[in-house]
Amino acid sequence: MPDGNADALARLRDALVPDIPAQAGDMPLQAFSRAVTRARRDFTAARYAGLADDLAELIPAARSTSSAAGRSLAAQVYHLAARTLIKLSAPPYAWVAAHQGEQAATASGDLRALAEARRDLVSLFHRAADYGKARDLTARAADLMRPQLSGAAPTAWGAYGALMSTGAIAAARMEDRHSALAMLEEAAEASQQAPKLVLSAGHVVTYRIGVSIILGDAGTAIEHARGISPDDIPTVERRASYYTGIAEAYTLWGKTDRALRALLIAEKIAPAEVRRSNSRRIIEDLLHRDPHSNLSGLRALARRVSVTL
């Protein structure tokens, strides 16, 4: 991990679990709301290290707020902290953020916050390889939230669809094709009601690619990728995931030159995404498949992300 990321991660960790009782944060609600909006923008732009620093500054305010609107914003801060810590490969701290986010979301009663908090837990159970728990949490959350979606705010629809998309990945890991595809269909339906920056049809396609890869169907993953334009994915974070998914599918398909091309595009879009563990595994796989590779740029890319044979 780059030193800047490690320092930012440590500051966020200490904000979540301070060494001494934390001082209450004093931030007017409007300023708090604007700061959370900026933080969401930074996450979608894959600026994780800077975001970790900003979130560390926001957590005291999240901890001290008591109004329903403030608790909803607090839940969003913890949600962004959990997602950022996952991106920075720090799941133990992400569990802390997710737990605090669940508490804030429950106190707020905000459907969007509840869906985001549940998604964080699903993601963390998935990363702990407890795929059954992740899938079942998603299914239970769907049963509870679905009746509340009628008339819900567009952002709540987006959070619900993102939860379903994440749960579909866990179901695929269980080889539960039926549940995975059903969850993706729910996510696609939710995307029609959601703001494009929160959950677009293009976002859902990136998860369709992931599910197809997990189920061993690289060809279907590529078909999904070809079915949309990258411009249909409005956030940098998901657009980079689109290309790393293509790279993984082409690697499984044995088309290493196309896999490398997709990784290089992903790196150009969001360098932080190519430094994550899944992208690094793809690069390692490409190197192992052809240790004397003459592919232009592969070894240079491996050096940039500190991957060696």
Results as ranks from 00 to 15, higher is better:
Lys255Cys: 04
Ala159Gly: 15
Arg226Tyr: 02
Ile269Arg: 01
Val204Trp: 04
Ala156Pro: 00
Gln100His: 14
Ala6Lys: 14
Gln103Lys: 14
Asp26Gln: 11
Asp54Tyr: 00
Ala49Met: 05
Leu197His: 05
Arg177Val: 14
Asp54His: 01
Ile233Leu: 02
Arg40Ser: 07
Arg47Ile: 00
Ala259Ile: 08
Ala171Phe: 10
Gln148Asp: 12
Ile246Trp: 07
Ser33Glu: 14
Gln100Tyr: 15
Ala107Ile: 01
Gly25Tyr: 05
Leu260Gln: 08
Lys87Leu: 00
Ala302His: 11
Lys268Tyr: 13
Leu263Ala: 07
Ala97Ser: 13
Ser89Gln: 12
His126Lys: 05
Ala152Asn: 03
Arg112Ser: 08
Val307Cys: 05
Gln148His: 10
Glu186Phe: 05
Arg275Ala: 13
Leu55His: 07
Val236Ala: 06
Ala302Lys: 12
Thr84Gly: 01
Thr256Phe: 06
Ile209Tyr: 01
Thr84Val: 09
Asp130Gln: 12
Asp3Cys: 02
Val17Gln: 15
Gly101Trp: 12
Ala35Pro: 02
Gly101Pro: 11
Asp19Met: 14
Ala49Tyr: 01
Arg140Gln: 15
Arg41Gln: 07
Gly161Leu: 08
Leu163Pro: 06
Ala46His: 08
Arg63Ser: 12
Met145Asp: 01
Gly161Ile: 10
Leu184Met: 09
Glu57Thr: 15
Ala52Trp: 07
Ala45Ser: 10
Gln193Gly: 02
Ala75Asp: 11
His292Asp: 15
Leu149Arg: 02
Leu9Arg: 15
Pro230Ile: 08
Ala182Asn: 14
His126Met: 02
Pro230Asp: 08
Gly4Lys: 12
Lys196Tyr: 03
Arg289Ala: 14
Thr251Phe: 07
Pro271Glu: 04
Pro18Met: 07
Ala240Cys: 06
Ile214Tyr: 05
Phe32Met: 11
Ser150Thr: 12
Ile209Gln: 04
Gln100Glu: 15
Gly167Leu: 10
Val305Ser: 05
Ala74Cys: 09
Val274Gly: 05
Val77Asp: 11
Gln193Glu: 10
Tyr160Leu: 10
Tyr48Trp: 06
Pro271Cys: 04
Ile214Met: 04
Asp285Trp: 03
Asp110Ala: 08
Ala270Gln: 07
Ile269Phe: 05
Leu137Gln: 09
Ala52His: 03
Pro92Met: 12
Arg258Pro: 00
Ala162Thr: 05
Ala6Leu: 15
Leu184Tyr: 06
Thr44Asn: 09
Arg127Ala: 00
Lys133Gly: 00
Ala68His: 04
Ala94Met: 13
Gln30His: 09
Ile86Leu: 06
Gly158Phe: 03
Pro154His: 06
Ser293Gln: 09
Ile86Asp: 03
Asp143Leu: 13
Glu189Asn: 06
Ala152Asp: 03
Lys255Pro: 01
Ala190Asp: 04
Ser306Tyr: 11
Ala240Asn: 08
Leu298Trp: 08
Ala6Asn: 12
Ala249Tyr: 05
Ser66Phe: 09
Ala10Ser: 07
Ser296Arg: 11
Leu301Phe: 11
Leu252Pro: 00
Ala190Gly: 03
Tyr250Pro: 01
Leu85Thr: 12
Leu287Ala: 07
